[in-house]
Design a protein around this nucleic acid. Sequence first.
DNA 1: CTGAAAGCGCTAACAC
DNA 2: GTGTTAGCGCTTTCAG
Lengths: 353, 353
Amino acid sequence: MTPLVKGSARMPRSVDVARLAGVSQKTVSRVLNNEPYVSADVRQRVLDAADQLGYRLNNAARTLASGRTRSIGVVSLGTALFGPASLLIGVERAVRDAGYALRIVNTLEGDAPDIAGAVESLLEQGVDGIVISEPIDEQTEPVRVDVPVLSLGAPSAFAAPRVLTTGVSTELLARVATEHLLDLGHASVHHLAGPQRWYAARDRLEGWRAALQARDRHEPAVLHGDWSAASGYAAGRELAGDREVTAVFAANDDMAIGVIRALLEAGRRVPEDVSVVGFDDIPVAAYVTPPLTTVRQPFDAVATEGIKLLVRAIEQPQADLPPAAGQPVELVVRSSTAPPPRTTRGRRRATSD
Amino acid sequence: MTPLVKGSARMPRSVDVARLAGVSQKTVSRVLNNEPYVSADVRQRVLDAADQLGYRLNNAARTLASGRTRSIGVVSLGTALFGPASLLIGVERAVRDAGYALRIVNTLEGDAPDIAGAVESLLEQGVDGIVISEPIDEQTEPVRVDVPVLSLGAPSAFAAPRVLTTGVSTELLARVATEHLLDLGHASVHHLAGPQRWYAARDRLEGWRAALQARDRHEPAVLHGDWSAASGYAAGRELAGDREVTAVFAANDDMAIGVIRALLEAGRRVPEDVSVVGFDDIPVAAYVTPPLTTVRQPFDAVATEGIKLLVRAIEQPQADLPPAAGQPVELVVRSSTAPPPRTTRGRRRATSD
DNA sequence: CTGAAAGCGCTAACAC
DNA sequence: GTGTTAGCGCTTTCAG
């Protein structure tokens, strides 16, 4: 009468392995944890015995006895948006490479209570560290957490032993995108921002603004979308009516594609009449009409870097945390951007002909 | 000297709660597990005490004592492709709704050894059930698993107590897409298939073939892509050279967008000269030029249905498994499809004028 | 280098 | 309705 039977036979335990290998249970534990001070001979005997029995370490027992779960929890957004999804993939790989298991909780809205609840549920499941993938709202009141927290992107209000932050400065990327347009000769650049509750959206807005201010350009009213192509389309219709508009920087590619669609439908050519830059370099960006100029985020590098920091905070609680390394920035110029039309009021001078 | 301290203070245990509430430790356990036979008064006292202490159940101890992990593992593909990502989100939600935690392992290639390894690692972490999200290769030799396995899409070779399968018949969706083109009057339909290692790709290919055969149409040579817009573009260039081509069904939207791009560059209009249908209805599908006709998969319904089955298999090992319910099929007609040009050799007759 | 004893914090079975 | 008694299968001391 063994209630823990999963399959037909009882699961072998480490004592069974020990018995078969003719050693103590503790020695089995040593071998399986790659601890030193085990003779090669004994090690091999144990390994063989384990293999023969189809033995598998019981994770719950390990965790209970050691107090370490060897797993990392991530709070993610329940969205198939390219950015968050790509980041999550990078995080999974990095976590696995570091020898940890991954536990995921998605939040629907990503607002403060949602995130707090998700963190709570991860803590209950047992995790050694937590990653907040796309932080949205600032936490109003700090959540108390007893493991290190990595916030990918935004600083967040967690009262944890260690709070870490990495991420590219997407602000820098936004600046680069805007400058590209300015360099082409546009007098100014309109911005279609993402939902301002997202840190990523605010960050890009700031980058755009900084680029404009650095060159002392007029700052047009900001339009707001929700990351969707549909919202980009709606904004594009507004933009199409305004003849002043010669350049648009959208906070992601989906919205940029929506903007272009609206512009084309209104009879404004892209890039001849209006240039459009996106953000993310989604896989289809090179194949829409016209191929989209955009900037690319190094999701994988960000994830790798972030998890490295988190794991260090978990395993060496005392050590100093090195500052996050800067990530490369990549502008991908395609055909949706060009110099402004001649009749523009821009301070550009006709270049030839 | 308590090694399990995570924060500054020792984590409270259920005995601490019991002491504070003036009951036995077992009663605390009862309350926290929502077991019956606890008076409302005692229940409230326990809850208050737990709250006051900031008590949190220790999952490892629960698991060890009960033999149930209350978590489900998913083997997923490390890709940000819209389909797999959307499915994963649905799975996460369904798993959470069922009161289980989620453990994820991505595979890079999704081939047999990869999947076997991923399953092994989930088993070691401890899971009550396993979901194989986008099955690729058939397993050559069955993997022995002692928990129920849900294969989302394809039947797979797991020697598990129960192996379940759900998923829309994407074969049916492919047939609907092909029939749409045929109904418009096209003599036949070319197919740009996905990588044939993917079950999803083989399934769609079959649906396309079935539609053609049902109407006794000529079956053109199949083109192959890798799901990417780039591969669609390459295939599109081939297609553009062949004047016989008036209709193309691509196995996903990204490839369809690549095909359209190549067609347009070659001077073939879409849909006037060639109609193109995609698959998935990715968010930008409605905003590319021309807006893409496509079919939509009910990811959420598939996930919900599948997890429901899996949870039943976990919690009621003896019960019969109801067959998976059929899912609705949705064809989204936009502007990338139209009747074939007049000069076509198709058996269609001019309709008017 | 190896082993024996003592829990980790909870649930399960059974008593009261 | 509630409490008591045993473990769950490991890791952690601490001896040899």
